[in-house]
Design a protein around this nucleic acid. Structure first.
Length: 877
RNA sequence: GCCCCUGUGGCGGAAUUGGUAGACGCGCCUGACUCAAAAUCAGGUGGUGGUAACAUCGUGCUGGUUCGAGUCCGGCCAGGGGCACCA
């Protein structure tokens, strides 16, 4: 009997040490068993772990431990996404070096992860800030460059004025920098880009193959890539009106059907034609300057008024050369989508309508909604973008929108002007190339040298890595690499003359775009990956992380894997076969009457009847319980790992984080929930202790027959086994938890039914031993330390971490008689117990003989009796 | 504005994918043990009526399909998320 309370604080480190010493979670690449790669998104070493990390890693660990038991060679590694801004901010604020700050944090967090008892292969640990890692990234940058997947170009970029760096589109959330929260400005800079658009169509198409990804993420990626099909059409310009005799203008449209509703042609202020004309027209130059000034902050763009400038240029309508349209420069036209030029159809596009109302251009409706009289159909303040029939459109009149699109496309494709078709079908993507240049120190240096004679020169592979200099200062804003006295001054690798290093570093999302591949062989020095290892382990079978990376990390990694495939570093294009996005851990907020937030561990909660109240633990002062929110430093509602591992223990915390809420949803951290988990830890300890006592009396040989009590115990154990196995495979951890509770309840009841020691027959003792073993193996993925302790108490010499998953006896789940609910007219009136394989006629007879059924029938004769085998009986009157 | 998701007891949530709504946990109530508390154990816990057996209503609202709807379809309402001058 386990008389002592289970002491997690003593037991947990003891088992961690044993696992560690025996190296049981280190995975060999030549393991012949089927592979299974489980990965949780690796953490940024920000300082300390909190319960949100516990949830994330506990889920991955359940999968890893269960798959290991099921006979897979499991790869479950851990590393550090170690480059990034916070290290530099710490350097500025605390006068520490980013490297020291980062590695100190890694040491702390590694220690904390070990406290959680995760079954990780620490021999494969990597940190992205280690030159042993980033040199390979530089190597791949050079390979991608050679393959045409990297490009240096001038473009408009998002500039974060607080972090003093450029941000990718994916890193701008509602017009603000994703880290700093500062309003992002537009700047024209020369930058390095990864050509993610080269794979736009494939990235989109392959989403259909990611059948183990959440729909939500797939939808978000589809929207982000944003494919639209349309027509590229050529407008002929009146050369007399253009600055340098230009005679054509290309326009992209998805609505060629509305071409007869055109009332102007619009070009972006950044369009080459606008630039050319501005050189000769000071008023237009002023207007363009005005557009750019007004357009610096994203937030302003969204509320900005539509403004335009009539260039005096005239364009011929593609379907009627005699119809001349005015060409405006308009502030709402984006240069980097389509061609930077549009035709404006105000009746059916709200932006165009707002624009023409201001400049007095005509509004001609050309699509009339079904059922509306074309004579009375007028456009007011709202453009009509729905379906309908064409009007005011000459040969298109009467067609549907789709027919008209087809007709216009056909005509213009076959019409030629100067030996080229007037129009061609085109696909455009919203997705833009990934700008990776960052004007920061703590990142992977871009291995490029600029030479006055040779131009842009890649660093030779033999010279890699390009290491970050150690002696840098953070006393001024801006890039420390750029103002370093010597680092950037190098000899040109080609001509030997004085040249200059690229001082930008790579976006930290590059670092995390391939780490999962590096884990497959982190020891190889000569290449980013060992092809045998990487092709063996990839794809990741189960990837787990936050949904906030749906269009960031998860899209970049898909691109990067394609680029690695194109340059021979991996043999596949989709890195993550299964993806699971877990919810956040949220917590109540607490504030003193003066509005100051109070941390959870300073608060004492009291339940009185249905009401709860919070008191300051130290003084008893009443505290207001605020809304439940995402854990954040500003709301002071975070719960750290140290607070819980040191008291209730890691197992209880893991158990609580996996219980109640479905894993994809947010979970609320509560003291009560944590206590409930702790109680269950003790209950399992007592229960297995009692069962161990009985198990000691069990015969070695399996009994020939089992009595009713033993059979009940065995049925409960095997039912739980079946459920937990399925629920782990489907990542429904909350249901695993419920089924383990059910088994514990059933076993507790079975023990309670034993009236005297004499009732413990050999077959019952044997069943108890079997059930106890099943119970411990079933909960060990969630509470591994407690499981080892119980496993030892059951007399095992080996570790439960190495125990095989129990074998299910399906016969135990099949009952010989079943109880079916009986409905009359769809309302439940009785139960009927019949043989499992009873004939329908027999069931019907049994049902109609029931007193409750007769009563409900009120003497009427049933019209029909519906019998769903093994399910239900419904008598219809 | 467009796209997507969610809505079930006091709370977190189950419901074999169209078949007994409320598994399991938390909280609460009653009892046992205790000088007392903690811990533990036993019982109860959707609403209404009834001592009870039982009856009746009940899955955001509303209509429909069906022998049967939390689950499917139509229309609303509420909450959350994503995208947003993308032509």
């Amino acid at each position: 009997m386990n008389n002592e309370r289970y002491n997690a604080r003593e037991a947990e480190p003891r088992w961690q040490k044993i696992w560690d010493e025996r190296g049981i979670f280190a995975t060999r690449n030549d393991d012949p068993r089927p592979k299974y790669y489980v990965l949780e998104m690796f953490p940024y070493p920000s300082g300390k772990l909190h319960v949100g990390h516990v949830r994330n890693y506990a889920m991955g660990d359940v999968v890893a431990r269960a798959r290991r038991a099921m006979g897979y060679a499991v790869l479950h590694p851990m590393g550090w996404d170690a480059f990034g801004m916070p290290a530099e901010n710490a350097a500025m604020e605390r006068k520490v070096h980013p490297r020291g700050w980062t590695y100190d944090n890694i040491a702390t967090m590694r220690q904390q992860l070990k406290l959680m008892g995760l079954s990780l292969d620490w021999s494969r640990e990597i940190a992205t800030c280690d030159p042993d890692y980033y040199q390979h990234q530089q190597r791949m940058f050079l390979d991608f460059l050679k393959a045409g997947l990297v490009e240096r170009k001038q473009s408009k970029v998002n500039w974060d004025p607080v972090d003093h760096t450029v941000l990718a589109n994916e890193q701008v959330i509602e017009g603000r920098g994703w880290r700093s929260g500062a309003l992002v400005e537009q700047r024209e800079l020369t930058q390095w880009f990864f050509k993610i658009t080269a794979f736009a169509q494939d990235l989109l198409d392959s989403i259909d193959t990611l059948d183990r990804w959440p729909d939500k993420v797939r939808v978000m990626q589809r929207n982000w890539i944003g494919r639209s099909e349309g027509l590229l059409l050529r407008f002929m310009l009146d050369a007399k009106t253009t600055p340098n005799g230009e005679s054509e203008l290309d326009v992209f449209t998805t609505r060629p059907d509305t071409l007869f509703g055109a009332s102007f042609v619009g070009i972006s202020p950044d369009h080459p034609l606008a630039t050319a004309l501005a050189a000769k027209n000071p008023a237009l130059a002023d207007f363009i300057v005005q557009c750019k000034r007004q357009g610096t902050a994203q937030e302003l763009i969204e509320t900005a008024e539509k403004l335009g400038f009539d260039t005096g240029i005239r364009a011929a309508h593609p379907l009627d050369p005699t119809w001349m349209l005015p060409v405006y420069v308009a502030n709402f036209i984006l240069m980097d989508y389509g061609t930077g030029a549009i035709f404006g159809c105000p009746a059916h596009d709200q932006r165009d309508l707002d624009f023409v109302r201001k400049y007095g251009l005509p509004v001609t409706p050309v699509v009339c909604p079904e059922g509306q009289d074309p004579k009375t159909f007028v456009i007011g303040d709202t453009a009509y973008d729905g379906d309908g029939r064409l009007i005011n459109s000459r040969f298109l009149d009467g067609m549907t929108v789709d027919e008209a699109k087809g007709e216009v496309t056909r005509r213009l494709e076959s019409a030629s002007q100067g030996n080229r078709p007037v129009a061609q079908r085109q696909v455009n993507f919203r997705l833009r190339d990934w700008g990776i240049s960052r004007q920061r120190y703590w990142g992977c240096p871009i291995p490029i040298i600029y030479c006055a004679d040779c131009g842009v020169v890649p660093v030779p592979v033999a010279d890699l890595p390009v290491r970050l200099p150690e002696d840098v200062s953070f006393d001024k804003p801006g890039n420390p690499l750029d103002r370093h006295p010597t680092w950037k001054h190098v000899a040109c690798p080609q001509c030997g003359k004085a040249a200059r290093r690229e001082t930008d570093t790579m976006d930290t999302f590059v670092d995390s775009s391939w780490y999962f591949a590096r884990f497959t062989d982190p020891w190889i020095k000569t290449a980013p990956t060992d092809r045998t290892a990487v092709d063996h382990w990839l794809p990741v079978d189960q990837y787990i992380g936050g949904v906030e990376h749906a269009v960031l990390h998860l899209l970049y990694s898909r691109f990067f894997t394609r680029a690695m495939q194109a340059t021979g570093h991996v043999g596949l294009k989709e890195p993550f076969a299964g993806l699971f996005t877990q919810g956040m851990v949220v917590h109540e907020t607490y504030r003193k009457p003066d509005g100051v937030y109070v941390e959870p561990f300073e608060v004492r909660l009291e339940n009185a009847g249905d009401t709860r109240r919070a008191l300051l633990a130290s003084t008893g002062e009443a505290i207001e319980i605020g809304p439940i929110e995402k854990m954040s430093k500003s709301k002071r509602n975070t719960v750290g790992l140290d607070e819980i591992a040191g008291t209730a223990g890691a197992d209880a915390a893991r158990w609580f984080m996996l219980s109640d809420s479905p894993p994809e949803r947010d979970v609320i951290w509560t003291e009560d929930g944590m206590q409930g988990a702790s109680r269950f830890v003790q209950r399992l300890w007592r229960l297995t202790g009692e069962m161990a006592e009985m198990a000691a009396k069990a015969p070695d040989r399996r009994p020939e027959t089992f009595g009713a009590p033993a059979t009940a115990v065995r049925k409960a154990a095997h039912a739980a086994l079946a459920h937990v196995t399925e629920d782990i495979e489907r990542l429904r951890f909350n249901r695993c938890v419920a089924h383990i509770y059910e088994l514990a309840n059933a076993l507790g009841a079975a023990i309670g039914d034993i009236v005297s020691p004499a009732a413990i027959t050999p077959d019952l003792a044997w069943a108890m031993r079997e059930a106890a073993n099943i119970l411990v193996v079933l909960f060990h993925p969630m509470m591994p330390h407690l499981a080892e302790e119980c496993w030892a108490a059951l007399g095992h010499q080996s570790l439960v971490a190495l125990a095989p998953w129990p074998t299910l006896e399906p016969d135990l789940l099949i009952e010989s008689t079943i109880t079916l609910p009986v409905q009359v007219n769809g309302k439940k009136r009785a139960d009927v117990t019949v043989a499992r394989d009873a004939a329908k006629g027999d069931i019907e007879a049994a049902v109609l003989a029931l007193e409750a059924v007769a009563k409900a029938l009120e003497g009427k004769t049933p019209k029909k009796v519906i019998i769903v085998p093994q399910r239900i009986v419904n008598v219809v009157v």
